[in-house]
């Protein structure tokens, strides 16, 4: 409660949370309030106006509908990838950091190995080989499976710092098994940290999806913010100055990621007393 109180004192947190929950709300109730359609409703790249607030795309589809659908896709991918990456990273990090020894060395080696191989490269290789059946869910899963490395490193550092604390030794003396120590005595201490890792993972999941979709390897089953941008680039909308083809999608991605960064930074300020003024 005190933490929440402190968080609410931070303007950064309020702006970040406001922006984030605002976009979440739009994604959730948008399709109910707004009459979404994926059909051709007018001319190619018709300018905004005439009942279509953000104009039409190159197939004459309504951009507001596309954006709502894209926003939902991006949030879905972000959360899916974020949950997978954070779970794997936290498990590997806590276990390795706490146990130490050979298991830690092996896990650490694996982490250090995959941390330097660029995620984008792996994403491109997998996505390019999956010509059919490249769904939004699959992309989210792949991003999650390839993005856990740095969170494992970060969590490991935290867990290994906790390892030699008195309350852990007491719990061990008390005969608690490893699982119990990890869940009851370590996880609560680093929970705030893991949560911050999760926020960044969601943001980077959204960015990864938009990047991979932007270069034409995006989901084939739905519209995402990245596929909107890909279409805008492929049809030359950028060079023709058709701002409504990419500006709203651009702004949406940036606002979500910015909101998540704000949340993360403000939490860092509250959880990490050293950063407090």
């Amino acid at each position: 409660m005190k933490i929440l109180k402190n968080l609410l004192k931070s303007p950064m947190f309020i702006i970040g949370a406001g922006l984030f929950f605002g976009t979440l709300l739009i994604a959730l109730i948008g399709p109910i309030v707004y009459n979404m359609t994926m059909d051709r409703v007018g001319a190619q790249y018709a300018a905004p106006g005439g009942g279509y607030l953000l104009g039409l795309d190159d197939l004459g589809r309504d951009y507001v509908s596309l954006l709502l659908s894209g926003l939902r896709s991006s949030l879905y991918v972000g959360f899916l990838a974020g949950i997978i990456a954070t779970t794997i990273g936290t498990l590997i990090g806590i276990y390795g950091g706490f146990r130490g020894g050979l298991v830690d060395d092996l896990l650490n080696m694996m982490t250090n190995l995959f941390v330097v191989i660029p995620q984008l490269v792996i994403l491109i290789l997998i996505s390019a080989s999956l010509q059919e059946g490249r769904s939004l869910t699959l992309i989210g899963v792949i991003i999650g499976l390839t993005g856990w490395t740095w969170s494992a490193r970060a969590v490991r550092a935290q867990a290994s710092a906790l390892k030699s604390k008195d309350h852990i030794s007491l719990a061990k003396l008390n005969g608690d098994n490893t699982l119990r120590v990890l869940l009851v005595h370590i996880l609560p201490y680093i929970f705030s940290y893991v949560f911050m890792v999760f926020i960044i993972q969601v943001a980077s999941g959204i960015l990864s999806e938009s990047a991979i979709s932007m270069i034409g390897l995006g989901p084939l089953d739905t519209v995402s913010l990245g596929t909107i941008l890909n279409q805008a680039k492929n049809t030359g909308a950028l060079g023709d100055g058709v701002w409504w083809a990419f500006m709203p999608a651009t702004a949406t991605i940036t606002v979500i990621v910015f909101a998540l960064y704000l949340l993360n930074t403000s939490m860092d300020g509250v959880f990490n007393p050293r950063l407090r003024k």
């Binding site: 960015l207 938009s210 932007m214 680039k233 950028l238 651009t250 940036t254 910015f258 704000l262």
Partner: peptide, 30 residues
């Protein structure tokens, strides 16, 4: 700075193209 770092690389590139290449014609777009 926080806002800048929240921009995906390519998105920022698109904005620069739009304003400084297509809009003002100061620089070539591609």
């Amino acid at each position: 700075a926080l806002g800048l770092s929240a921009f995906p690389f390519f998105v920022f590139g698109m904005l620069l193209v739009y304003f400084f290449a297509v809009g003002f014609h100061w620089f070539p777009a591609m």
